[in-house]
Simulated assay, not measured.
Amino acid sequence: MFARKPTLAGERVTLRPVGPEHVDGLWELVNNPETVRLTGSHAPFDRFGIGWWYGSRGDHDDRLDLAICTAEDDAYVGEVVLNELDADNLSCNLRIALVGPRAFGRGYGTEAIRLVLDHAFSTTELHRISLEVFDFNDRAAHVYRKVGFVEEGVRRDALRWNGGWHNAIMMSILAPAWAARKT
């Protein structure tokens, strides 16, 4: 479904297929404590693994991994990914991560999500795109609602972080709802 790896341009960001040229940016992203907390990432990363990961994403037609680069100077500020494709049910998952405070609050994430949703719903048969956001990530939950995601439920105590438990809020957007928002 995602054999074609497009470049998508907006006013603030350009989304590009991830590749080895984005490894330094991903390394910064996975080493930013705030980004790690917001994504609930417990796994350690190594530089070699990061390089292999970004170098191999183009080989997978069941996912779309795009680097979020600033339109101004093409600097890497994060990634947006469509993964966990369920081709039988025309659905997938969306995840997004920004490099940290230098990318927060600038509209990069909002525009990246809108660009990837528009691409997914206008060029594929996808009907449903879902995501999860942790209950302490109010900024992301606000953005998801703003672009049209609807809360579906909660996975209670889904994340253990620094000795505390946090819920994961499940959200989705459907192709008809996206189409209605565009008109």
Rank of each mutant, 00 (worst) to 15 (best):
A140Y: 10
D118Q: 14
A3N: 09
G40D: 02
G51D: 13
R47V: 12
R155M: 14
L66K: 02
R106S: 08
L131W: 11
P6M: 02
I68H: 02
E28R: 15
P176N: 02
L8N: 05
N93D: 15
E28L: 13
F121M: 03
R102I: 11
H22E: 11
G51R: 07
P44N: 15
G19Y: 04
R155D: 09
I129S: 04
L90G: 02
W53P: 03
P176E: 02
D86Q: 11
D135Q: 14
V36A: 13
S91C: 12
L66A: 05
A71W: 07
K182Q: 14
S122W: 00
D118R: 06
H127T: 07
A158Q: 04
T7G: 10
K146Q: 11
E72Q: 14
S41F: 11
A158K: 04
A97V: 00
A158N: 08
T183W: 09
H60I: 08
W165R: 10
I96P: 02
T183K: 11
A43L: 14
G107Q: 06
G51T: 07
G148P: 03
V154Q: 12
G100R: 04
E28I: 13
N32T: 04
A71Q: 14
V23L: 12
F136T: 01
P17Y: 05
M170T: 15
L94V: 05
G109W: 07
W52R: 13
R128I: 08
D86R: 13
G78E: 04
G148L: 03
E28M: 11
A158Y: 06
L15A: 00
Y54K: 09
L115N: 00
Y54S: 09
D24F: 15
E111W: 00
D73T: 13
L8S: 07
W165D: 08
R47T: 13
T7Q: 13
F104L: 06
S91P: 06
V150W: 08
A112S: 02
W161F: 09
G40S: 01
D157P: 06
W165K: 11
A180M: 13
G55T: 00
V147W: 02
H42R: 15
G164T: 15
E11G: 05
W27P: 07
F104W: 15
